[in-house]
Amino acid sequence: MIQFPNAKINLGLQLVEKRPDGFHNLVSCFYPVGWSDALEILPANDEPSFTLSGLPVPGEPKQNLCWKAYELLRKEYQLPPIKMHLHKVIPMGAGLGGGSADAAFTLKILNSTFDLGLSDEILQNYARQLGSDCAFFVKNEPVLAVEKGDVFEEINLDLKGWHIVLVYPNLAISTAEAYAGVVPRTPEKDLRSLLKQDPITWKNEVVNDFELSLFPKYPVLGELKEQLYQMGAVCASMSGSGSTVFGLFSGNQPENVSFPAEYSVWQGTL
């Protein structure tokens, strides 16, 4: 079976407080987008294997979250050997949740392939063991994420028909680096309430708190945000704790999409 693990963006990201366990409580809207990897899993007759292609992925293959997801279920359900191949397209350190999506889709494919009969809730609980935002990709629909980003509340938000441009400036920012510079604070405004308003009001209201420390350190991020506004974006922001900057456009896609050749750019309709 082959599926296409997709990325997500953060519509607003409020860092509320540091937790006793070292993580941070946050509030953010996770929204799926179409930039995708490709993941194939097939039963194997011999030893299980995991191979990679596309963008280079650091570390040993069997340290990959996809393999860890397989091992997690294998321990409890005595899964047979598999052949797994991941073609990596979503950049890493980009704030798009690509690795988390790969892990969650691994769980979903294994559940389907081997008829495990696991509910979405059970799959989410397994996904939470792999990473804070992995569980989002089980249902893969807009949510308001709270606590570590692994507890979800329903949100009535539909951006269907909106155009999005995502720009990754070939700059990987690790989660540890991003969090090292933040100062948690109580939000002045409720994100859920802000997202109920027309997106034309989001420009100065729906913000990503990581921008405050990362934009001075990496000026290219602020420059990209401004460029997207100059192209006609209604709202532009950094996504997650990584370096991708996205712009939302109402109506037709912008005609003047031009970025350096070394950047990765994806655009499509939500």
Rank of each mutant, 00 (worst) to 15 (best):
I200Q: 14
G242E: 06
K88D: 01
T269C: 10
H24Y: 14
L65Y: 02
V207R: 15
L73V: 08
E71H: 09
W202R: 10
S193D: 14
S132T: 08
P216R: 07
H24F: 12
K62C: 02
P187V: 08
P81F: 11
S36R: 13
G149T: 08
P254F: 05
K8Y: 13
I173H: 01
A38H: 06
R192P: 01
N45A: 13
S243K: 03
L96T: 05
P56I: 06
E255W: 06
Q253A: 15
M238I: 09
F105V: 13
K225I: 02
A94K: 04
E226D: 13
Q124W: 00
F114R: 04
T175C: 00
G247K: 09
E47G: 04
K83M: 03
V16F: 10
A38M: 05
K196P: 03
E226W: 06
L221P: 09
E47R: 13
V182E: 09
D198T: 14
S28V: 05
E255K: 13
W35C: 07
N170T: 12
M231C: 10
P20Q: 03
G131Q: 01
P43H: 03
Y168I: 02
A135L: 09
A101S: 15
T201P: 01
P184R: 07
A176Y: 00
S258K: 06
Q14Y: 08
E76A: 13
K160Y: 11
I2N: 02
M1Y: 07
I9K: 06
P61H: 11
G22W: 00
P199G: 12
I164C: 12
L248K: 11
W67K: 07
F249T: 10
R128H: 08
Y168Q: 01
R185H: 15
F105G: 00
T175V: 11
A7R: 04
N45Y: 04
I109G: 02
W266Q: 07
R128G: 05
C134Y: 08
A103G: 07
P219C: 06
G34Y: 09
M1F: 09
L248P: 09
A176G: 00
E154H: 12
I90R: 03
I82S: 04
D102K: 04
R192I: 11
S132P: 01
V165G: 00
P184N: 12
L52N: 10
F136G: 11
Y77S: 06
A261F: 05
N256T: 12
P254S: 05
A178N: 06
E205L: 14
D46H: 13
I2C: 00
L65W: 12
H163A: 14
P20M: 03
E76G: 10
G95I: 10
C29K: 03
G59W: 06
P187T: 07
L123Y: 09
E60A: 15
F50W: 13
S53D: 06
V57D: 01
C66T: 02
K203Q: 14
L26A: 02
L248N: 11
P219E: 08
P219Y: 10
P5T: 07
F23A: 01
N45I: 03
R185D: 05
D120P: 05
E226Q: 14
A233K: 03
E47T: 14
V33T: 04
G117Y: 04
L110Y: 12
L221T: 03
Q197C: 12
V57P: 11
Y77T: 02
R128E: 04
W67A: 11
L52V: 07
P48D: 09
A94R: 01
V89G: 02
I9V: 15
G99R: 02
S28P: 00
V265G: 06
P169A: 01
Y218L: 08
P20R: 05
